[in-house]
Design a protein around this nucleic acid. Sequence first.
DNA 1: TTGTTAAGTCTACGAGCGTATACTTCGCGC
DNA 2: GCGCGAAGTATACGCTCGTAGACTTAACAA
Lengths: 197, 197
Amino acid sequence: MARPVRPAHRRDATATRAAILASAVRAFSAQGYDGAGVREIAAGAGVTAMLVNRYFGSKEKLFAEAVAATMERPIILSDANLGAADRPRAMAKALVAITTPGETPLDGLQILLKSAASKAAARIARVEIDKRNQKRLSSALDGAHASERAAIVFALVAGLQFMRQSLELPALKSVSPKILAELLAPLFAQLLDGDQR
Amino acid sequence: MARPVRPAHRRDATATRAAILASAVRAFSAQGYDGAGVREIAAGAGVTAMLVNRYFGSKEKLFAEAVAATMERPIILSDANLGAADRPRAMAKALVAITTPGETPLDGLQILLKSAASKAAARIARVEIDKRNQKRLSSALDGAHASERAAIVFALVAGLQFMRQSLELPALKSVSPKILAELLAPLFAQLLDGDQR
DNA sequence: TTGTTAAGTCTACGAGCGTATACTTCGCGC
DNA sequence: GCGCGAAGTATACGCTCGTAGACTTAACAA
């Protein structure tokens, strides 16, 4: 059969680009926009710093792509727990699992939190989260003030992620996942339920 | 009457020290630990950069003092709403007021959020918040898992602050304070109430 | 008036940052 | 076999950072 229209490049530019982007996600998620250096990101991809700018133009544009890439998948409202019978409990469990240190972290959210100090980073992230997750979640909520309630859900998720992963608050580090989920479930129930009080 | 034991110093060292600390709180709260520069903090106090290190030893020690100073006052559990009749509603209103852009911000919390990228900053802040607010709040809660519930309260507060002030999520910028408070009150009620579900 | 000492400043260093320019190395099409 | 363009590197510039050491200035004691 015929080879693909454009076969893999000479020294595989697309793979290198992907490696840089992956390294950027790792670095930004761990150290934030200002804390992560271009040289460090490049080293994580096995190349030199200048290739980063060659492929992405500038650190800021690279950050924008990294944010966009990590926001691809929804924050906690996965398709699985969208259709779950007890949706609040499913979301609480998902939140606990995701914010547990060592587990696969929510890169997108982590980048947001770690990059809070940078105005440029906040602007880039705002439009991204607003476009993707906010609409996705608020359209899944019934009742009044859906987008506000969705935003509060995000606040709760971000806050818990912050307290567990960044601040490492002792009370939230040692607690058992089961208990934490049971403490969170009624909050989600309250937020998902359109009828207030 | 006798003069104080040690009268005001030659060029008022204590006032200068206080000015530097105030400027540091402002700068750290706006730009985080890494983002705020020693020169900029000094300029905000009307002195040169070297005086900062002279008075505080290093940037890190200055940060520790700034964090300690801003944590002096409780985060949302003021004495006023501790004794309020409808405590959840009082806390919700306080939270909305405090996180509204332009209002007197929660410097301590803002410093925490903006400094999330720095390991040193997180460590300093953790012990401070754990000592002061966590104990204060969890001792005010009845029922099981008091400290965990208190930590979730902090997470909610931090998350809302983050979404409103740093990310400036549109849904939370335009919402009326009244409605937002009514959306938050049941969450606090749920968290303050020791009996789950 | 003058000596002393704390308060405050000047200059500078070494390191790291983002990135622009010029260079080298590789791999495919002819 | 070979050249040409793309992939990748080396070097360097200008800037800012935290802070160390020597210096200057001001206020009180005598």
